Computed example of a mutant assay.
Amino acid sequence: MCWLISVKMLKPYYIKSNENYVRIILAYQYFAVVINKKVYQFIPVEAKEIRINRSTRKVENIGARFAFQKGKDIVYMTMSELLSLPDFLYQLHTIAKPYYNCVDVESNEQENETAIIIDELEHLNVKRLIDNALDERDEEAFRTLVKLL
Rank of each mutant, 00 (worst) to 15 (best):
T94H: 11
V22W: 02
E120T: 13
S17R: 12
E81L: 06
L4F: 13
L124Q: 03
R23H: 07
I95K: 03
R65Q: 14
N125H: 11
N108K: 03
K38R: 12
L145P: 01
M77G: 04
L83Q: 10
N53Y: 02
E111T: 05
E46C: 11
M79T: 10
E136V: 13
A47G: 07
E106D: 13
M79E: 06
E19D: 14
E111M: 13
V45A: 09
K37H: 15
V33T: 02
Y14V: 00
L10K: 03
S107G: 00
N20A: 09
K70E: 15
P98D: 05
V103L: 10
L121S: 06
I43Y: 04
L129N: 11
V34N: 12
Q110G: 00
V22Q: 02
F88N: 01
K70G: 04
D87W: 07
W3T: 13
R57V: 06
V22N: 01
T144W: 11
T78L: 02
L89E: 06
M79R: 02
S107L: 06
D104C: 12
T114Y: 15
E60D: 09
H123N: 12
E122F: 08
K147T: 04
Y76P: 02
E139R: 15
L148V: 03
D131G: 14
L85F: 04
Y21T: 11
M9Y: 08
